[in-house]
């Protein structure tokens, strides 16, 4: 048994069954599913408890967590959708627009920019160092300067303003990740394309871009999430028109305590848009695209 496990290139740590009823490989695969499910369950414990709390009445929340609730309520969801007097539909819309806008802007800036730096020698490494160093500065350093810049340019409390601010936040992440992926693209492909008379632009659009798909998907997901999660810049740079969900949710943290039910419901709702986006982006996160592109 042990020898067989080793000989199988895709073996897992799951102990092989004594009497294989189903083909071993499939059983193994289910073993992986079980292991991954367990890990996912642990990782999502906070969200799971938020989900439970979001349906409990205030009275039940205020008592032991293991007590079976007297009633279930949708009141907290109503509050998280605007019943509490805060314009949550708008906050959700703002967050979505800001996040999508940021993803688009980051890709538009970083993909050609990283190619220019990685392959065409733009900035000779110093530019990349500068961009990476931006990440090192605590975000709060930029709060007052951005406030000043945005107030003067009319970007304060606007969606384009928040897109700009979040692009700034995600620029080092986007650039570095795209750079690392471009580094992996074999030179031979580009050389061959150049011999065929392809321009640099065409190489980026037709050859590099498809090869980068999994990384770009990961970048898109992370940038979306980062923009979605931004709180500090949003507090400083918005006041009412462009307020995102994170700042809206802070309304449930009050001077007389935290509205656990309302903020739990908001948390649950607030993971849905990034989740949908991740599910959408996930299809680019698959193996084979790169291999296929190389062959073609």
């Amino acid at each position: 048994m042990a020898l067989e496990t080793i000989s199988d290139g895709r073996g897992t740590t799951v102990t092989p069954p004594r009497t294989p009823v189903v083909p071993r490989r499939r059983r193994r695969a289910w073993g992986v599913t079980a292991a991954v499910s367990a890990i996912a369950a642990v990782l999502n414990l906070p969200l799971f408890f938020a989900l439970l709390t979001s349906f409990k009445s205030d009275a039940d929340i205020a008592r032991s967590a293991l007590r079976v609730p007297d009633t279930l309520t949708l009141e907290h969801y109503a509050n998280a959708m605007g019943q509490a007097g805060y314009d949550f539909p708008r906050y959700f819309l703002n967050s979505t627009l800001i996040s999508i806008g940021t993803v688009v802007t980051i890709l538009v800036i970083c993909v050609p920019g990283a190619y220019a730096m990685g392959r065409l020698g733009l900035g000779r490494g110093h530019l990349l160092k500068g961009i990476a160093a931006l990440r090192l500065i605590p975000v709060i350093f930029f709060a007052v300067p951005f406030f000043l810049l945005f107030s003067r340019t009319g970007l304060y409390d606007t969606i384009p303003g928040m897109v700009t601010a979040n692009t700034f936040i995600s620029l080092p992440l986007g650039t570095l990740l795209v750079m690392s992926a471009i580094r992996e693209v074999p030179h031979e492909i580009e050389e061959a394309a150049k011999l065929d008379g392809c321009s640099d632009y065409r190489i980026v659009a037709r050859i590099v871009l498809p090869l980068l798909a999994p990384t770009l998907a990961a970048v898109a997901v992370l940038v979306f999430i980062t923009a979605w999660s931004d709180y500090l810049f949003a507090v400083i740079l918005t006041s009412s028109e462009a307020t995102p969900v994170t700042v809206g949710a802070a309304n449930f943290v009050t001077s007389t305590g935290i509205r656990w039910g309302d903020i739990s419901a908001t948390t649950v709702l607030s993971v849905l848009p990034p989740l949908v986006f991740a599910l959408f982006a996930q299809r680019y996160l698959v193996r084979g695209l790169s291999a296929g592109a190389i062959k073609g």
Binding site: V104, T105, V108, I109, P112, T158, I159, P160, S199, R202
Partner: peptide
């Protein structure tokens, strides 16, 4: 530079400019 890639570059730049300068004090 093909027509198409020129258009793409133009779009990229406008996109940034819109992001940087768009909006207004309502």
């Amino acid at each position: 530079m093909s027509k198409r890639s020129r258009a793409v570059s133009a779009a990229l730049i406008t996109g940034v400019l819109v992001a940087a300068c768009g909006g207004g004090d309502s």
